[in-house]
């Protein structure tokens, strides 16, 4: 290129592009796949609308007292079983990392056994405990009949809570391991005892790592409580079943139950967001750095 062509750009219009119109790239593949998926979705919606679902039943039973009672019992069971699971999980995790070989062996055995058997099976084991232990108590002090104690509620809380504890202990342990050893040392040098260090320094930091998987487990527990319907605990699925045994509107009532599960899980997901924000204080968020 010589000096003359630089001073008069018209001479070579190849480099003059500022006035051209920009045509955006067309996402043909994207449009085709979106269209296909939308058609499939429309077919699904149509199938449900022409299917023999009496939507009026869904609407009528959504707020039926038996369903709402079941919902309350489902929530109660979630809180009780998950509460037991978290308490056991923290306890087992601390036993596991403690220097005491007996405690850590027990912790390992606990996780092995209760993570190894299906939750439904464990639930039934507790419920049928009376078959092998007709009575329980401390000999000479007090004694009760096992069937009186092992109500569907108690059996379900024990079955679900104890098996949950095995999973949660691994979450807690990974949380504890995620805390830098320097934090333990700094806590010790200001004269903290072991328990104070765990409570004030280590666990709050471990929580940041633990909240997302524990949130996952709470949501899993909401749905796992449906297993308790097998041992006659009147949670929402059990109550829906009782209704459809009477009126034969099986699918309508299953949809009612699904609606409530979805509603509860949605509320919990929002709650998890705020809990994460609380325990994430002091740390830069990953999102803001991306």
């Amino acid at each position: 290129m010589n000096v003359a062509s630089l001073s008069s750009p018209r001479a070579d219009s190849k480099y003059e592009i500022a006035h051209l119109k920009l045509v955006p790239k067309r996402h043909v593949g994207r449009m085709v796949t979106a269209a296909v998926v939308l058609v499939l979705l429309a077919t699904l919606v149509r199938a449900f609308s022409v299917g023999q679902i009496e939507w009026s039943y869904v609407r009528d039973f959504l707020f039926a007292p038996a369903i709402l009672d079941g919902l309350v019992n489902t929530l109660l069971m979630t809180v009780a079983a998950m509460g037991l699971g978290i308490v056991l999980g923290v306890l087992i995790a601390i036993m596991r990392i403690s220097g005491n070989p007996v405690l850590s062996s027990i912790a390992i055995a606990y996780v092995w056994i209760f993570r190894g058997a299906p939750a439904l099976l464990q639930l039934m084991l507790w419920f049928n405990l009376a078959l092998i232990f007709p009575t329980m108590g401390i000999p000479g002090l007090f004694e009760v009949r096992t069937v009186d104690v092992m109500t569907p509620f108690v059996a379900a809380v024990l079955g679900l809570g104890i098996s949950q504890g095995a999973y949660t202990s691994e979450v807690v342990r990974s949380g504890l391991l995620s805390v830098d050893s320097g934090q333990y040392e700094a806590a010790r040098t200001i004269g903290m005892t072991q328990m104070m260090m765990l409570r004030r320094i280590v666990l709050p930091q471990a929580m940041r790592v633990m909240v997302p998987p524990v949130g996952n487990e709470v949501i899993g527990m909401v749905k796992l409580t449906s297993l308790a319907s097998v041992i006659q605990y009147s949670e929402i699925l059990h109550n829906a079943q009782i209704i459809y045994f009477a009126n034969t509107r099986v699918l309508e009532l299953l949809l009612v139950a699904s609606f409530w599960y979805l509603a509860v899980v949605s509320v919990l997901s929002i709650g998890q967001h705020y809990i994460e924000r609380y325990f994430g204080r002091g740390s830069k968020s990953i999102r803001s750095s991306m």
Binding site: E185, R188, G191, Q205, S283
Partner: peptide, 24 residues
């Protein structure tokens, strides 16, 4: 454990990697 903690109270320590509590 408790007696060791009592003795450590009188001895401050500053670490190479600071070890401040990040949640405080």
């Amino acid at each position: 454990d408790a007696e060791i903690s009592r003795q450590r109270r009188r001895i401050g320590m500053v670490f190479q990697r600071f070890n401040l509590f990040p949640h405080k």
